[in-house]
């Protein structure tokens, strides 16, 4: 009965996602005749349309969907786990940790000599930051302490990123780091997709079947504990999952903010506010939003391509403001 609502929502987002994916394949500086491109992709002879489709557009589209799904999902998980609608991967330090890890790899030139350095740096940074926040907060911390610990880790990671930018050996390195920080899906190849998949899939699996636990957390940590939720295990598991998911995504796409905050928030009322029913729609919604933002980036007629992270932030900042105003109205 209630499930129908969720299934309908999933179906609608899926349809929109398929449409956006097709649009994404067709959008770019070269207009692509899809039929010819497909024909070339499946034939022995290499043609320019086939190469553009298989080497550029398909990987870019898939990376946008996987990264967007990861960000949307981790936002939904984070908000449910911390029982706080303003929580997001950025809040517990995962995103800035990933940025620090990846920037470190860029700074020392590791990514040039070893192609996995960037994603590994991102995952390592995200895991380290998330776990530091968790350990800082202590074993029996409430959500508020955890969020404060996240804020501290966040501040430190961003300060370190600034330090690395400050100390960068050449203007070229500064530019590379700065542009990476803006978040972009341009120049994505199949390689990046393969690089981000393992961490992402392990992270998704760790979240799998934790829906009931997140539902029970609605009643508070104490009640959830009395109803069979092993809170500490659950936190470890989900923090590691978020580290893997966010680290994998951010290291490939660069810093892309606000998707994890916005998407679960928009979709929550549509699933009756139930955390377990929010997970899949949030993943799909995140994929859709990042894909649309990336299509937007490619269609804005400017000489310099706007980075997709800039677009999500431009959407995110006013959204955050609206959220605060709404909170203030309902809170008072």
């Amino acid at each position: 009965m209630v499930n129908l609502q969720q299934q309908r929502l999933i179906l609608i987002i899926c349809l929109m996602l398929v449409g956006a994916a097709l649009l994404s394949l067709l959008t770019g500086s070269t207009s692509l005749p899809l039929y010819a491109a497909l024909q070339q992709s499946f034939s022995e002879v290499d043609g320019v349309y086939g190469i553009i489709l298989t080497e550029l557009r398909i990987p870019r589209t898939l990376v946008a969907m996987v990264a967007g799904a990861s960000l949307g999902l981790s936002g939904a998980v984070m908000q449910s786990l911390l029982r706080n609608p303003l929580a997001s991967p950025g809040l517990v330090g995962s995103a800035s940790g990933a940025a620090l890890g990846a920037v470190t790899a860029l700074y020392f030139g590791l990514s040039a000599s070893f192609s996995l350095a960037l994603p590994l740096g991102g995952i390592g940074g995200a895991l380290l930051a998330t776990l530091t926040a968790y350990l800082l907060a202590g074993r029996e911390a409430g959500p508020l302490t955890l969020i404060l610990a996240g804020v501290a880790v966040n501040a430190f990671a961003l300060a370190m990123v600034s330090l690395l930018l400050n100390l960068a050996p050449s203007p070229y390195a500064v530019q590379e780091i700065a542009l990476w920080m803006l978040g972009s899906l341009a120049n994505i190849s199949r390689n990046e997709l393969w690089v981000m998949l393992p961490g992402t899939l392990i992270g998704w699996l760790l979240v799998w079947r934790r829906g009931h636990d997140l539902d029970l957390l609605t009643l508070g940590e104490e009640t959830a504990g009395s109803m069979g939720v092993e809170l500490e295990k659950l936190r470890w598991r989900l923090f590691i999952a978020i580290g893997l998911i966010v680290g994998s995504a951010i290291s490939v796409t660069g810093s892309i903010g606000f998707i994890g905050l916005m998407i679960p928030h928009i979709l929550r009322p549509l699933v009756g506010h139930q955390p377990s029913r929010l997970l899949i729609p949030s993943a799909l919604g995140g994929a859709l939003l990042l894909l649309l933002a990336d299509i937007g980036v490619r269609t804005i007629p400017l000489d310099t391509e706007i980075k997709v992270g800039v677009i999500t932030s431009l959407l995110g900042a006013p959204f955050f403001l609206w959220l605060i105003l709404k909170q203030r109205r309902s809170g008072s």
Binding site: S80, R83, L216, T218, L219, H273, Q274
Partner: peptide
């Protein structure tokens, strides 16, 4: 008990069956 999300009465009650 502070309920984190404004779920419906029926859904909140049904959480009691999750164990």
């Amino acid at each position: 008990t502070e309920v984190a999300w404004p779920m419906s009465v029926e859904r909140l009650v049904s959480l009691g069956r999750l164990p």
